[in-house]
Design a protein around this nucleic acid. Structure first.
Lengths: 208, 208
DNA sequence: TGACGAAAGTTAGCACTGCTTACATATATT
DNA sequence: AATATATGTAAGCAGTGCTAACTTTCGTCA
């Protein structure tokens, strides 16, 4: 896939053929559509329209509609993981705060891009045979597991680490969903988040 | 609603006007479609086909597509709440087991009807102005809150009760989503569920 | 009882969608 | 330069959500 630079190309790495790189532009357009009109409210035709190409052009880059969505999810997974990692490294290694910060990054992502977030975890329905997405999801879990492992001073593969990390992730995941579902009701601010996250982290990692 | 038997009709209780009660039959058909083909894979036309009516008939009972889905969600919310209540009453009032059983009923529902479950919490995107659904969702939360209140021997409206109930609900909600998203990976059985649920209930209600 | 309005169904049709096929064009390679 | 490949277009099919206009059945009330 990555072109061999036989002769160097001045402006960008991939000036591409006709359009620019349509693929990335389509993914970007779809991300916006999913965010504004909901996961169902997106259409390939509308995305193509926004990218300024015909309605058949997307099918040169994606097999079908769901593959475009998978592309959006894949890109979003990368962003989520790096946000979680940034949260972890903003605090001392092995601290409860580092664990809580990973969770806070997770919740912040969900709140910033609720449509994409829901798509990330609502898509797996019929597409469980998407190993790349599964791998990226597990990479996100790995960030939690590593923070927990450092906190407990145990290897990351330890069963108890995995168990507690999963419980923490469940809480964060559920809180993320609930907070975007009923954002008017449980008016949880970032400060409330931190309290919640620290309380749960403490209960799960410091206690007993 | 219940027909007056002017002259008795042999076969069923509700011969009704033309069809039987199409509304309930449509909701049932849509529920099956959502479960098998995913939330997007459902179409009004296919549901009408399964009910044996023309593709325009559903619009005599529902304003548009999303209203049918809301009908499915509404019915599912009722079933979920009664399942949670049944879980609570299967154990001594105020016990940790009662709290865990509420959570287990929640997880069991998600695992039994993952498509509908996802629909219940993925629908709220553009339809936040559906007060009946919101009310039913809060009624479900009320079951958790009541179990927690009995456990802590505090009034249900107490802030600490609400807080801990919310945390527990977040965990259960997240665990439900994760378990249906990666059902092959984290091969969690009902026994694992119970361990998880009891551990978290203990950590959140017995500790400190 | 019979007339009548409303409820619940039908067919026909519009605008749109996902996707395919066949064709046109730009790029890369030999 | 010639050719194969990648990328775009236009045209079209089947299916969708939804509406409009019409027909049939039911409940009601003079």
């Amino acid at each position: 896939m990555s072109g061999d630079p036989h002769h160097p190309v001045p402006p960008v790495a991939k000036p591409a053929y006709h359009h620019g790189d349509l693929r990335a532009q389509l993914i970007s357009a779809v991300r916006e559509l999913v965010e504004t009109h909901g996961p169902d409210g997106f259409s390939v035709a509308e995305a193509a329209r926004r990218a300024g190409v015909s309605s058949a052009a997307p099918y040169k880059h994606f097999k079908d509609r769901s593959e475009i969505l998978r592309g959006v999810v894949s890109e979003a997974m990368d962003r989520l993981r790096s946000a979680m990692e940034a949260g972890a490294t903003a605090h001392p290694l092995g601290s409860l705060e580092a664990v809580a910060a990973v969770g806070q990054a997770y919740v912040a992502f969900a709140r910033a891009e609720p449509g994409v977030f829901r798509l990330m975890f609502g898509l797996t329905e019929g597409h469980e045979d998407a190993p790349d997405l599964m791998a990226k999801g597990e990479a996100c879990f790995g960030v939690v597991a590593q923070a927990v492992a450092l906190c407990l001073d145990l290897p990351q593969a330890d069963a108890e680490v995995q168990r507690r990390a999963y419980i923490l992730w469940s809480f964060v995941h559920g809180h993320s969903f609930l907070t975007i579902d009923m954002k008017h009701k449980v008016a949880s601010t970032a400060i409330d988040d931190w309290d919640y996250l620290m309380a749960v982290s403490h209960a799960m990692l410091a206690g007993s």
